[in-house]
Amino acid sequence: MIRRHPHTLLALYVEGTCSAAEQAAVAAHLRRCEACARAVATQQPLHRRLQRIPKPATPPFLVQRIMARYDRLQQRASFWSGFESIPRLLQPAFVALLLAVALYFLWPARQESLYDQAVKTYASVYQSGDNWTALANDEDALRFALNRPADIPKESDHDR
């Protein structure tokens, strides 16, 4: 015997999809419960009427439009498929490497280090055939270019 309003069973009863046992139990409840009997009497014609409402037709070319959009998305996705072939754990490292390379080449105010400047000075002096070529060796010349004259041996020392 059903003691509470059996709303879950009533939904099935309205459609006529209850099992025989459930149907008998609900019918017994409906004989005693006026509220549920009224609800079922209201809902049964509504359910029948809703089922007669025709289904909306698909708008023309809807499927074709969907497939065209899908194809465009696939084309875009194939551009990134190379990246996706890299193992997932290595993807951030790959992105970081790309960024580092890009920054190296694109950084606007990249300055030469002091050492680079010194090497260039040394090279230009060496090629010009100036007196400084008389410096004992490349190391001395570099020291000179790096503006550390105190360490450079004097010409007279070489002569000795």
Binding site: H7, A11, V14, A39, Q43, L46, H47
Partner: peptide, 20 residues
């Protein structure tokens, strides 16, 4: 499933009240 059925019952009840 129980929630679906009880909410359906309530939905039909409210819809019928508005539609009738």
């Amino acid at each position: 499933p129980g929630t679906v059925k009880s909410r359906l019952f309530r939905a039909r009840q409210e819809l019928a009240a508005h539609l009738r």
